[in-house]
Amino acid sequence: MWIYEKRLEYPVCVTGKNIRLAKWVITQYGGPDGELAASLRYLNQRYSMPTEETRALLNDIGTEELAHLEIVGTIVHKLTKDASVEELKAAGLGGHYADHDRALFYTDATGNPWTAAYIQAKGDPIADLTEDMAAEQKARATYNWLINLSDDPLVTDVLRFLREREIVHFQRFGEALNHVQELFATKKFY
């Protein structure tokens, strides 16, 4: 069960309309290393995790990623909501407009739709936690590139917050992986 809390985890302000920036930021909404992929990956891997610690961590990070999805969605919405058709066209979002008008959609920065092929679930906790750590690093790198691209300091501030969270998640997954490896070293598995 989830309870919705009517606030963002981190406040989102934008300087103004910025369609070009939105076109890049959307990748953290529906791209391969984005927040949707992160949340669904972790929430799905919960079921086959072997310890109290790993189940709790995947549950809770998966939940925080949903809050990040909402932050990214809010950025994109605020950057594009007042865009004219001409402006969307000029920024290369004519195709997006044809299919979705100004609605958000789960795509990467070049318009490819989200796919479950972005995520993995091997059932092996070492493999899955290692994938999760790589996923956090890829998300961190993506936020880095977005920060380099951003010309709106208010959006950059939010992207920095999100990048920092990926570093914390990586750290926590690393601790969980160590504990699982220690456990496996002391137990016999068939």
Partner: peptide, 11 residues
Amino acid sequence: VELNLYLDTHP
């Protein structure tokens, strides 16, 4: 949130 995630791995 920070304390929650921390406690998940430092119970």
